[in-house]
Every structure is written in C-alpha cells, then in structure tokens.
Amino acid sequence: MKNDLQKLFAPPACETAAADYIENYLKNKAETTRDAMGSVTVHIGGSGKKLLLSAHIDEPALMITHIDENGFLRFAAAGQLNPIELINSKVVFSDKICGAVFCNAEKNVSEIKISDLFIDINAHSRDEAEKLVSEGDMAVIGGRSLSRLCCSILLELIDEIKASNYDLYFAFTVQKEVGFRGIMPVINSVMPDIFIALDTVKADDIPCGKSEIKLKGGAVIAVKDGRSVLSPSLVSDFRETAFKNSVSVQYASFNEQQTEAPTAQCAAGGSKAAAICVPVRYLNTANETISEKDIYAAKTLIKHFITEA
C-alpha cells in the first residue's frame, strides 16, 4: 500500500496533489496525459482489444457554504456523506487548518441532516474565520482517506504487468464523488472496448448492517450497479478467473450507483463494463477499515484477468 497517496488532500475538483503524485510515480515508466478536468491517463500499450482500468483519485469533502457571525462554518456535502457519521469528526482544509464537526440540533438521530451540522475551527468571529478559510473552501475527513486505495492497486499493477492480451490503458479519474464525472472525458478520449472500474465499497457486515458484502470476504464482483446490469460475459470471465486461480471473491448488486462502470458503459460509443470493488468498513469516515486479504484478492483477480483471459 502506498500510504503517501492516502494522506494527500484531494477533494472533488481539487485533485492536483493526487494527480501530481501519480504522474511523478509513473515518471520514466510510462507516458501520462492529463485532461482539462484533471484526470490522468496512462497508455501502456499491447496488442488486442482496448482495455481501460480506472480508479478515482478524489475523496468526499465538506464544502463551506456560509460563515456565521460567531465564526462557525456551515457546509454542503461534496460526495456521499452520512451526517450522523460526520458528527465529532476531525476535518482538515487545504492549508492544514483543522476543525471538527458538531451538531446542536434537538432532533432524533435519524432526522439529522447536513444542514444541522457545523464546523468549529476555533475562530470566534466571522472576521477571524475569514482569515483562515472562505466560502467554497473544502475540507476532508481526518486527513487520510482510503478512497485512493484502488489507485495504489493500479499503480502496483502497472509495475507488475509485463505482458497482456490487451491494448492497456489506466485512468486515474477526478470528480467521482460528485456524480462519476471525471470518467466521461476519459472515455471520450480513449474509447475503450472493455472498461473495468476499481473502487471501494461499503462493507456493512456490522451489527444491524444491511449489505451482504463482508470485510475479508474477498474481492467484490458487481453484477448490477444502480440501474445498469454490468456485462454478464465479463462477470462470468471474472468468475472463471477467480475459480481457476483460487482467488476469494464475493458478489454484489448495488441499488444505488457505486462505481464508474455504468457511466462508462454508455459514454462515447459504449463499452463492455465491469466493476471490481474492495470492501471497506465505515467507508467515508475517519475510521475506514480494510483487509490486506481483500486488496490482494482484487489485485490478483485483475492481474490474472489481464494476463490470461
């Protein structure tokens, strides 16, 4: 795991630090391009069909909408954030200014909304707060996010793959958290035949949890994502690859779109799309928990797929 990558500051639309890291890492290894939105694409090459693998480099953020007269900040969520999980979280702005999220509403827990929360950055008036931050500034949770976990996997794959049956492209995309946006221009430029999204997904195998996805249950193969059924032939290819190489996998069907696969499926001229996910407990909180076993499973599954299928 490339830990430095997880510590970078990269809220949606401010991913420059993460994109720079990736370009720097790939310097002398492969040629990279960055598009107008900021996504980094790498063409590895090879013969065969065009295969694009993608992982996003942004992370959910809190965006200041209003600074009140006592120096407290109100915010909107840029990304999928659960207001209850945000309470009492430490948040960090771009220039290391820290704050914490609190809630003072007299409400039932289930009724608490983002608009009931505020950030305290230890400023005691609007003037004092405006010296540190301004409206539109973004903060990330805890200063460390596993959102870029899958970028690390892709970087390792780039290092390890020597030959494949495909014309290989890798993309490190921006603005996934605000509506799977960064992937669209990448698809328009690369126009792949096959697209594989690599992403993190919530493992809800906790008391009163709702999902079937388990931490340490192996790589997650998505069969359906939101309203899109992902390519059944790719799903069965992955199933076979996993079986042949004894990679532990689990299957999932998402009611809400979780990955870039549905977006890529119908962008430009269309592509066969699949999504492989790594389960994360307490996703998008300061206490994200992962298992090395799942990361290894996801990586080996994709590696075998690229080199064998």
């Binding site: 598009d35 107008a36 840029a78 509506g179 946006r181 960064g182 221009p185 328009n188």
Partner: peptide
C-alpha cells in the same frame, strides 16, 4: 456575491464540463 453548490449546480455548467475531453 458568492454562492456555493456542493454537488450539482443545477445548470448547463454541470453537463458541459464532461463533454468530449472535458470543458472547464
């Protein structure tokens, strides 16, 4: 005046940005 929209800003700006290889 400044306004802040955390996600979709509800205008054409949201859809134009992802056209072709990206339009700032």
């Amino acid at each position: 005046q400044i306004e802040v929209e955390g996600g979709d800003n509800g205008t054409d700006a949201f859809v134009i940005e992802t056209v072709k290889s990206g339009v700032p």
